[in-house]
Write a protein that binds this DNA or RNA. Structure first.
Lengths: 211, 211
DNA sequence: AATGAGTTTAACCAACTGGTCAAAAATATA
DNA sequence: TATATTTTTGACCAGTTGGTTAAACTCATT
């Protein structure tokens, strides 16, 4: 099978349309016809390039999961000083999700409705290396800040929660902002959150051993 | 129309089955036939009691949203000392979601896929009273802990994030626990989180004004 | 120009899905 | 018991959905 330019173009068009529709509607509510329409091609062509809806979804899901995953664990892979790292992370992290606001809810929703997909994805990959590098790397800082080793995962989940949740619950937060008379919009709120979350986390860990 | 016992029984059976199916599958993937099966009745009977799928879903959604909402803002309505309040909140909050693990992702997913539902629900309700009582009530504590008034919403979102996110991303967290060699299960992790989250938040706010 | 492999399309299909309806069963009313 | 009312059911329907297929089109190679 010789892949020429036009094929790659078509496949990409389909893939991008599929990403958009799946992310927007979720698997169950997504329609193959709509994907075809947005890609500007015939519906049969979807099945020509990707055999079935499930198969197309799987490719899309893996791509988007990778996108999200690498962003989320990015912080724990950098080698800057801890506090600087935190500030920089929240800054980048929030900026990224401002451009991909539906990504968190899409990933979480699809996984919770079909956990097998996650297991299938991660079953054959060995994350020992990443884990060790991440955990080993931060060992000094952990003890320096008084975070016990067994609380390491708690801490990571905590850091991540502060940005992902507001995006996942974006509409609820927006309503809340309205109700409380916040005049600026969601984006401004999240921009302010870059600083708030950083300072909050840094304050918390600075005094963990001074209980 | 005289409502006798059997009617109420049937209606309730339908309602509970609908709650279960909708919460488990989400609106788009939920099937009226499955709801009927779980309720142990004929499918036509669904339409007899609740005209359409949309209507049945709306009732279920409102019920579940109320359930979640009252739990989430519960903390901000109590009159105990701040730190005690925080500890108690995380304890109850996590215990509650351990019994309703799908609730957060269901609410967030459905709202993000159909924000109009939220607006419809809250459009005609005046939350000024709640807002004022909550915000007015905590005014002293806010200043005492050095939380600026404009950061109040940031703080609330932060507190709530720490428990809701791990449940919404339950499967991902579980995978993460496996990967990092955490031998105990998700429930144990969340039990430990009751303490971790409390101390984390308390540490953070204790030193907010001592920057 | 003829060939042939890869690409795109229109027409079509079987299964599913929410929803209807008239009849039957159950229950209340007289 | 006879009648009216409400509850429950099975059969059915129209629209939708993922997927198939055979024919048509494109285009490089000969």
């Amino acid at each position: 099978m010789v892949k020429n330019d036009s094929e790659k173009q078509t496949e990409e068009k389909i893939f991008e349309a599929a990403m958009a529709v799946f992310e927007e509607k979720g698997f169950a509510a997504a329609r193959m016809q709509e994907i075809a329409d947005r890609a500007g091609i015939n519906k049969s062509l979807l099945h020509y390039y990707f055999r079935s809806k499930d198969q197309l979804f799987e490719v899309v899901f893996n791509k988007l999961f990778e996108k999200m995953f690498s962003m989320v664990i990015g912080i724990f892979m950098s080698d800057k000083p801890f506090e600087e790292k935190i500030r920089e992370y929240y800054c980048e992290h929030i900026r990224f999700f401002q451009q991909n606001p539906m990504l968190p809810i899409f990933i979480m929703s699809e996984i919770s409705h079909n956990p097998e997909r996650l297991k299938k994805r991660f079953g054959n990959i060995d994350y020992t290396k990443i884990r060790d590098s991440v955990m080993g790397f931060h060992a000094e800082e952990m003890s320096e800040y008084g975070i016990k080793k067994e609380d390491w995962v708690q801490f990571m989940i905590t850091v991540v929660s502060l940005t992902i949740f507001p995006f996942a619950a974006k509409e609820i937060v927006k309503m809340f902002l309205d109700q409380t008379g916040y005049t600026k919009g969601f984006d401004d709120f999240m921009n302010e959150r870059k600083v708030f979350a950083s300072e909050f986390v840094i304050n918390a860990i600075k005094h963990m051993n001074k209980k």
